Every structure is written in structure tokens, then in C-alpha cells.
Amino acid sequence: MKLATWNVNSLRVRLPQVLAWLQTQQPDVLALQETKLEDHLFPVAELAALGYHAAFSGQKTYNGVALLSRQPLQDVQLGVPGLADDQRRVLAATTGGVRVVCLYVPNGQALDSPKYAYKLNWLAAVRNWLQAEVTVHGRVAVMGDFNVAPEDRDVYSPARWAGQVLVSDPERAAFRALLDIGLHDALRLHDQPERVFSWWNYGRLALARNWGLRIDHILVSATLAGECQGCTVDTGPRHHERPSDHAPVLATFAAPA
């Protein structure tokens, strides 16, 4: 089984890249963030032609999440139960015996912004919900753009980023709280080269200099962690003309014993 996540920063713009990538990588499940598409515009037919079922929750211009799967998606959940939030940031479904969750975590803007408080409250609500999901389903994968670089090694220059969103202590504590419910960072289950990132600013030659952050993650429950064979960031799509500012993250798993 191969699971993947990708913040495409507009599916309308990036659809040809996504279709080509699906044909090359052939993941069993792909979680998408920042689709920025209203539901009636979602490219269901184009994805079905490649053999993918789709569940999606979108809005115009901002946010938007989707799950693409080779097997049918069942028990689809839009949003976080009990959380009043009009932003389309959460989508969950069961496929192939795995409960997959797609998250697009709020950015937070700045530490003194109301959006930062919203982010922390949002993450707390998501943690409480996911704790129940892990207990009920057992085999769970939480994928997406978390807008949190968990450790200094996930930041190209911790000194330059000190005091900013994405790296603050409360955000990192919220990320660790997700791990505390029994989730594991798939990339950190395996030896990795230094300076592995998933997001690079469009300007200042950031990609060429590898001035990036690792903010896109695949978190898996204990059973899936034991089956995880590898996890990588595919930087290839970031080099395309008109790319997303994020690269896909992929994790592969052995078949259950």
C-alpha cells in the first residue's frame, strides 16, 4: 500500500501535474489540500479515468481538501464533529481497511494574530476527535499540510525562523499532542538524509538553496507504523513550471500479516 499527501495550491492550476504524478507514482490513496475548488467543479471524470474514486470538500479561492483512492471510499466524514468551522479543512474516509484523514491545518499568520489562537484551538479539537478515531479504527493514517515544522531539523534556519508561526513552541506542542494519542511520524520511522523539507517559498531562490520547511506529514497509528517500509518527499513536482510551493510526501506499507 502506498499513501501520499500533497498540498497542490489550486487543483485547477495543477491538475495536469497531479494526473501525471498519479500515473507515475500510482498511490493507493492521495490526500490533497488547498484544492481551491467548489465541489461542482471538482475533476471527478478526469480522476475516474485513471481509476480513482474521489471524496472532496471545497470552497472558492481558499482551502479545500480531497481524498483520491483506488478503492471505494466509505464512511466519509466532512469536518470535525462538534467543531463549528465553515472552512473546508478536514476530510476522512475508510478505504482498504484504513481510516484515512486529510488535514489542512490553519497557517496562523502571526503569533499575535487571532488566526494563531484559532489554529491552536483548531488543533486541540482535531486531537480530541482523532483520539477517538484511533481508538475506534485502529489502522489510521492522518495526512496533510500541518503548517508545523515539528523540530529544528525540519527548518533550514531555526535562528531565522525563531519567533514565527510554523515553528513556535505552542504549535510544536500541539503537534506532539497528536503523537501522544498513538500516532507516529512516518518519515521519522526511517533514517533520512539531512535537510529534508516539503515546502519552499516561491521567491529568493529558496528551492535552489533548499531553504525549506518540513510541514507536510503522514502520521500513522501503531499498526501501520509497524508495516511502514519507507517514507520520502518527492521533490520532482516542485521543479515543474508553475508548481505548487509544496512537494508530495509518500509512505509505503507492507501487506498486513
Score class of each variant (00 low, 15 high):
K2I: 10
L3E: 07
P16S: 09
P16D: 07
L19P: 03
A20M: 05
Q26T: 12
L30W: 11
L32G: 10
T35A: 08
L37T: 07
E38V: 09
E38K: 14
E38Q: 15
D39W: 01
D39A: 15
L41P: 03
P43S: 12
A48Y: 11
A54S: 15
F56N: 10
G58E: 05
K60W: 02
A66F: 04
L67G: 11
P72L: 04
Q74M: 11
L78N: 00
P81Y: 06
D85F: 05
Q87I: 01
Q87F: 02
R89V: 05
V90Q: 01
L91A: 02
A93V: 00
T94K: 08
T94Y: 00
T95Q: 02
G97D: 02
L103F: 10
P106G: 06
G108N: 04
L111D: 00
S113E: 01
P114Y: 00
P114I: 04
P114C: 04
Y116E: 00
Y116L: 00
N121E: 09
N121C: 05
V126K: 01
R127G: 00
Q131K: 13
E133C: 09
T135H: 13
G138V: 11
V140Q: 09
V142C: 15
G144K: 12
F146I: 07
A149K: 09
E151F: 03
A159L: 13
L166V: 08
V167H: 02
R172G: 08
A173P: 01
A173Q: 14
A186W: 14
R188H: 12
H190E: 11
Q192R: 15
V196S: 08
V196L: 12
F197H: 11
S198R: 11
W199N: 02
Y202T: 07
R209W: 05
I215K: 03
G226F: 09
G226D: 05
C228P: 06
G230H: 14
T232C: 09
G236K: 13
E241F: 10
R242W: 12
S244W: 03
A247E: 07
P248S: 12
P248T: 14
F253I: 10
A254Y: 02
P256M: 06
P256K: 05
A257S: 13
A257T: 09
